[in-house]
Nucleic acid binder design. Structure first.
Lengths: 225, 225
DNA sequence: AGCAAATGTGAGGATAGCTCATGTTTTGGA
DNA sequence: TCCAAAACATGAGCTATCCTCACATTTGCT
């Protein structure tokens, strides 16, 4: 109903949301133009008030052409969201590549969170899309999928840093930590500075501890718990 | 722009979203009727597809009357959200009332999370509103405010269980823990069972540890960190 | 050049939130 | 009881926006 899986194309990631895979070069350029126009409008006034007619006008094309490339308004936003996810996935891959100890992980994770927060503060489009994300079911699935992919990267690093750890618990922790990254960004944006920074730092501590295998209260935990 | 603070009424919480405070008894009953109709429609098909005309029809009133009690569609959803927040706040207050040790807190928090998750699974209206919550700026502020209030309750319990702890860190941790409760519910609902249960349990562990004052990796932390 | 396929166009359909001029009921004082 | 004023109810229709579709234009190929 919401997701049309009409994508037997070789590049399903970006082209999946499109009406047909553009064959001509100009078409591909138009798609980029549309996405840039949409970005600009979202940055200026938000995705809710962005009108499709404006996107068409700013892209120098008609409404009909616009709908030839994107089946609906949500598809444009989804495409932007997936692009930003791809970027952040690359950052995470790079950041965690050389991690072999918990000390490495701590430094790398802290740096990644700071970087991510800086991007959030600087990029109104990301802020807006991630805020409106929960409204659309397809967008929620995209966010979950991104968290899963990021969690795989984190789990890989964790396995190197904590060999012999229970894999299931590592995976669950990693997914929570990555998903909560998005959440804490939204929270920090909502509260504003300087509280946002405090919460980001508190989250770093929270995440570090969750990686640790030792129970927080060993003397209190009942064995069956 | 988004929020009209036209509420010099004595009860700003529920009546704040209304067009005028109803003076006649029948009016008050109608408000309840409207909210029940809206709940039913949201439970059946979601708040996005809930139409104001349907709410009016199911409430046995006209569109015009509907708009006499609620200034817009979002106000109905906001009112429902605030009611559910009030209920959960009561549960948290009760659940944390007798907490004096970390052992108490662990048990109480675990029980609260389980209870909350059960409500989420059982109540489609709560699920829907909390999912769509991030779409509306006013709703995001309501969620933040609820998390703040719940965090105050948690901080109070934490101060009893961990006297001598740094208050600022406790407050930040408490806010994160309470805000993440909402987030992990959304996550668990997205993944579905049985993964949802696993994530809930992982979150309990994560939350416990965040309360602990001891650094997770004392041998690694630099003093200035 | 000439034809078919791909692409472009924008008036208008469809839907849903919301308004407002008008009608009806309740209230409260004489 | 009677009446005027205030409160409340009504629903046709205004508005705004997403999206479609019948038709026009351009492109690629022989």
């Amino acid at each position: 109903m919401a997701l049309d899986q009409t994508a037997p194309s070789p590049i399903p990631e970006d082209e999946g949301a499109m009406r047909k895979s553009p064959t001509q070069k100009r078409s591909r350029e138009r798609v980029e133009h549309i996405l840039m126009s949409a970005s600009r409008l979202i940055a200026e006034r938000g995705s809710d008030t962005m009108r499709m007619s404006e996107v068409a006008e700013l892209s120098g094309i008609s409404i009909g052409s616009l709908y030839q490339y994107f089946p609906d308004k949500a598809a444009i936003i989804r495409t932007l969201a997936e692009r930003y996810n791809a970027i952040s996935r690359t950052c995470i891959t790079d950041g965690l590549a050389d991690v072999t100890t918990m000390e490495d992980l701590q430094r790398a994770f802290s740096a990644l969170i700071d970087e991510y927060y800086a991007i959030f503060l600087a990029e109104p489009v990301i802020r807006d899309i991630w805020s409106a994300m929960q409204a659309d079911k397809a967008l929620r699935e995209i966010e979950l999928e991104a968290s899963r992919q990021n969690a795989i990267l984190l789990t890989t690093a964790l396995k190197r840093a904590l060999p012999g750890e229970d894999i299931g618990k590592l995976q669950a922790s990693a997914l929570l930590v990555m998903y909560f990254c998005e959440c804490v960004m939204r929270l920090a944006i909502s509260t504003g500075e300087p509280e946002g920074r405090v919460l980001i730092e508190a989250y770093k501590r929270m995440a570090y501890r969750s990686f640790d295998d030792a129970p927080a209260f060993p003397r209190l935990l009942t064995p069956g718990g």
